[in-house]
């Protein structure tokens, strides 16, 4: 009786025709790739946002404390340069605010005078600006890490683009793999499909049986792939955390929503591809 109940739910014998090894294994591997690409894309996006904010003051100029009186002159020289979009002095109060985390309250400390520069674009080499400035204000130093930060932000954008392209490719390969698996399943059950057809099964019935089985296998494979991705991503994100803001919180930093969406998405790809493949094949029967 137990066997009868089992077969009753699978009269096309798809449990054996569509193995629960190969397709889920392949989909798991692709889901793992997709998870890595998604996490790469999300991570690159976070770094880009962070870095773009940090690059707001792309270049800072420091005047040594004894040259602080030259501030107006330095501003005039800088504002006259065509590469400079804007130059603003950072007030002493804001300097103290910025330095407090590192230096604490040290009222007597002589602070350098600092100017924030915005350049016309991030590709400009800041070294000649520094040379020209130090002719007028000896000892002025130009700090250009912001330029590197904005270049990194551009790099992060490209990484994000590549990650999304990888994602699209993985989805395309998934469709192809499911189509091949479906065709193998049809070939293995050709007789049975023809018998079903002659006994009055509709296309919808036959295609639905394949699609449900393949959708489940794909979703299961993607679940396994997403689960495998969790430890890998946790390790990656704890290594990347210092670049993205310092705090190491791998568990909250993981793209949980993306990971959770992978199985249903793979299931839908499997279901839809199987529906199409079977209906296409059935067109040869009257």
């Amino acid at each position: 009786m137990a066997r009868r109940a089992r077969y009753a739910r699978d009269p096309l014998g798809l449990r054996r025709a569509l193995s629960d090894r190969l397709l889920p294994g392949l989909v798991a591997a692709m889901a793992l790739l997709a998870a890595l690409a998604l996490a790469g894309s999300r991570g690159a996006e976070a770094l880009k946002d962070r870095w773009q904010a940090g690059a707001a003051a792309a270049v800072t100029v420091q005047l040594p404390p004894e040259q602080a009186v030259q501030m107006d002159q330095a501003l005039a020289v800088l504002r006259a340069m065509p590469e400079v979009q804007s130059a603003e002095a950072v007030s002493a109060a804001r300097m103290k605010e910025l330095l407090r985390p590192w230096l604490g309250e040290v009222p007597a400390l002589p602070l350098p005078a600092v100017i924030e520069l915005r350049l016309v674009n991030a590709a400009i080499d800041p070294a000649p600006l520094a040379n020209r400035l130090s002719e007028t204000v000896p000892g002025a130093e130009l700090e250009a890490h912001g330029i590197w930060v904005s270049r990194l932000a551009a790099l992060a954008s490209s990484v994000q683009g590549v990650a999304l392209a990888v994602l699209a490719l993985v989805a395309g390969v998934a469709v192809a793999v499911v189509a091949v698996a479906t065709r193998a399943g049809i070939a293995a059950r050709r007789e049975a499909i023809e018998i079903f057809h002659d006994l009055g099964a509709t296309q919808r019935d036959i295609a639905g049986r394949f699609a449900r089985r393949i959708g489940l296998l794909a979703a299961g494979g993607a679940l396994a792939g997403a689960a495998l991705a969790v430890p890998a991503l946790a390790a990656l994100s704890s290594m990347a955390a210092p670049f993205a803001g310092g705090e190491v919180m791998p568990w909250t930093a993981l793209p949980w929503l993306d990971l959770a969406l992978l199985p249903p998405f793979a299931g839908i790809i499997g279901w839809a591809t199987a529906q199409y493949s079977v209906r296409h094949w059935l067109r040869r029967l009257p």
Binding site: R3, R4, Y7, A8, P11, G13, R16, A192, I195
Partner: peptide, 8 residues
């Protein structure tokens, strides 16, 4: 269908 019982 070879994998189904007579009943099924």
């Amino acid at each position: 269908l070879p994998y189904l019982s007579a009943f099924d």
